[in-house]
Amino acid sequence: MSIEVRNVNKRFGQFQALKAIDLHIQSGELVALLGPSGCGKTSLLRIIAGLEAPDSGRIVFHGEDVSGHDVRDRNVGFVFQHYALFRHMTVFDNIAFGLRMKPKRQRPSDAAIADKVRELLGLVQLDWLADRYPEQLSGGQRQRIALARALAVEPRVLLLDEPFGALDAKVRKELRRWLARLHEDVHLTSVFVTHDQDEAMEVADRIVVMNKGVIEQIGTPAEVYANPASEFVYHFLGDANRLETDDGPLLFRPHEVRLSTHPAPGYRTGTVRECRQIGPLLRVTLEVPGQAQGIEVTLGPQALASGGFDRGALLHFHPGEAPRTAYRTP
């Protein structure tokens, strides 16, 4: 089931949340809407779901214009940021809810509903929790139950709003790998919203980078990382250095920098402001004359042994093979 967003605009009062958004999501794809808070990614997701009405524009599912459809007829699965589990219902009843709400003629029998719920609980690997209430579950468990509940009605597309936002770091990593695997199995067209670039890189087939209500770039994780379409994307996808040169500013990543203790052609000079070991890596911050912003350098484990990064030490650095001349600001 493909999703098409055609020229969607949305404003809240004075605030233009979405400006002329066009987006085509292929059938079976897992797409991340990535951007800082307030960039409009959640609004876009809610508009696709039908939870919010756009001021103008259309939403098309597999060639069928669903803009005018009521939310219950769009047949989307939606996982809320804080899960929105029904607090007065058991896990079982939560998952069964969508099936029980169906009109009498389409409603499966109680036995069929129970089978389906068990199957989904198995899928999210939480079969022993059927009789618990949401308040008795951990964050990660709630998240998976919310997913099972959304899948119960066999939606045409799956939408997830910051699916890992409310979890702690470790659970988060486990769950996103699990979600990526699940997507491979189920192969349901899925869109999720995140502000975390690692999450988007690790899970998504394609990333839609958004900022201030517009789409900055669409591409595979490798594409957007290798060829950021704008300075915003460059900064958002990873740590970035900005160096003022005679030919204008240059952008490059900390791991691309080469260091030398001797002056060499193409090398600039800086003094060590700080040196800090982060896990296996070493992060050196250099102070460069003529600019307030320091230059960050990350070095592999072998650099640890060599030493020579004491505060105030003089070093020479090269921006690496692929610095980009800074983007023209629109």
């Binding site: 809240f12 039908g50 939870l51 919010e52 009405a53 939310v71």
Partner: peptide, 9 residues
Amino acid sequence: MSSRPSPVI
């Protein structure tokens, strides 16, 4: 959580 006029409620 505040709610805006929503087409679903």
